[in-house]
Amino acid sequence: MTTINAKDYDYIDLNNKIRKSEKVCELNNCLGQRFISAGLKNKIITINGTPGNALGAYLNGAEITVNGNAQDAVGDTMNDGKIVIYGNIGDAAGYAMRGGSIYVKGNAGYRAGIHMKEYKEKIPAIVIGGKAGSFLGEYQAGGIIIVLGLENSDEIVGNFPCTGMHGGKMLLRSDCKNVRFPENLSVKAATDKDMEEFDKYISEFCRLFGADKEKIMNSAFTIITPDTKNPYKQMYVMN
């Protein structure tokens, strides 16, 4: 294992160190360095501290654990791998991600899972333990977004969730009575059969963060899917 004291490096040097490190790598005293492990595969990285924006951008198979909070654009355009955050994350997490998974113990900022997509066996997933900010799953084109709303008494998601959603699935641990969704969506109470599909993600969340699965499951869940994959088909006339 390689241990790096991140305090001594800016992001260029730090990423060079990580590229050259052994497969298992630990960063201590991380404080705001951006782009950590961008595009990496075949690494297992533990970060103690607070990584900067675009953590794991274009991630291609590496596994990242953050013992702390993460900032904006975690897992931007991520292709494969896993990011686990023992804290909160900032805005635009998992923008356009198409593979791998992101698990967050705490809350997510605005625009989590924007334009996530999927293709065949590559189905990305974001699981958020706390609540999510506004514009959750905007333009969602594929993949799975789960928000559990643990330890939050107020609303599980901010304003305008699922705007422009045209693929994938979203699962919110709430009856969503107070959440306003746009048109062209199917918003339903999740059935037991629906929940089977999400079981592996919720189980993994509980394993990672030591949450009580029974307690989590003992709640209403709402599943949101688009009811058209061609939302703009009727909008145009040929000229």
């Binding site: 635009a92 198409r98 625009r111 334009h115 333009y139 045209h166 693929g167 994959k229 939302p231």
Partner: peptide
């Protein structure tokens, strides 16, 4: 085209007006 874009066949490929980040 679907394989190259990595999105399912028949689904609209939507590029939002701004980069949201």
């Amino acid at each position: 085209v679907s394989r190259t874009r990595m999105i399912p066949e028949g689904t609209d490929a939507i590029s939002p007006a701004p980069h949201h980040d």
